[in-house]
């Protein structure tokens, strides 16, 4: 990371707060990119989760958990990357479509929580519940961090050079 990139960092959240216009009223022009992006994200996730290997080589419950883990991590990575991109390219409508809409609809929180809940109901060994929880949360955070750092290196340095 260059010095210019490093100097951006402390003011990161202030700049984002400005970009997000958090206290402005909701406009109709903001809602439709979110709606279309969210619908497309849900469709992409639904079609990916229908993909199945043969259950003899890869147990079905493991396939489901693994797929959601991969999709959520890819989504978290992509969101970190996208937010870093839109930090220097403030196109509000496209940002809402891609981040709040598509990536928000593509990733899902409830399904991961329901995997843990099912394991608890089925009285799975608490070790496996804790393991899957730890794997999900740590890989999710690591992916988001990696995406954001990579995006800051790539996009914010590009902006400095141009």
């Amino acid at each position: 990371m260059s010095e210019a990139g490093a100097s951006i960092e402390p003011t990161d959240d202030d700049a984002l707060a400005e970009l997000d216009e958090p206290t402005s009223a909701i406009r109709l022009s903001e809602l439709w990119p979110v709606a279309v992006g969210g619908g497309l994200g849900v469709l992409a996730r639904y079609n990916l989760t229908r993909f199945r290997w043969s259950p003899t080589i890869f147990p079905l419950w493991l396939q489901e958990q693994w797929l959601y883990l991969v999709m959520n991590s890819v989504g978290a990575f992509a969101l970190g990357l996208a937010l870093a991109f839109f930090h220097t390219h403030p196109q509000h409508g496209q940002r809402l479509f891609l981040t709040t809409g598509f990536l928000g609809g593509f990733t899902t929180y409830g399904t991961i929580a329901s995997f843990e809940q099912h394991a608890i109901i089925a009285s799975a060994p608490s070790g496996t519940v804790l393991l899957s929880l730890g794997v999900n949360l740590s890989i999710g955070v690591a992916a988001a961090y990696a995406g954001e750092r990579l995006g800051q290196c790539v996009f914010q340095d590009v902006e400095v050079q141009s």
Binding site: D12, G41, V42, G80, L103, T107, G110
Partner: peptide, 23 residues
């Protein structure tokens, strides 16, 4: 899959966690 999946989000929760940690 449709409503609850589109409503809840994993990516923003993870990025928010990273941001809280980095600030």
């Amino acid at each position: 899959v449709g409503f609850c999946g589109g409503f809840t989000t994993w990516s923003t929760a993870m990025v928010d966690t990273v941001r809280l940690g980095r600030t």
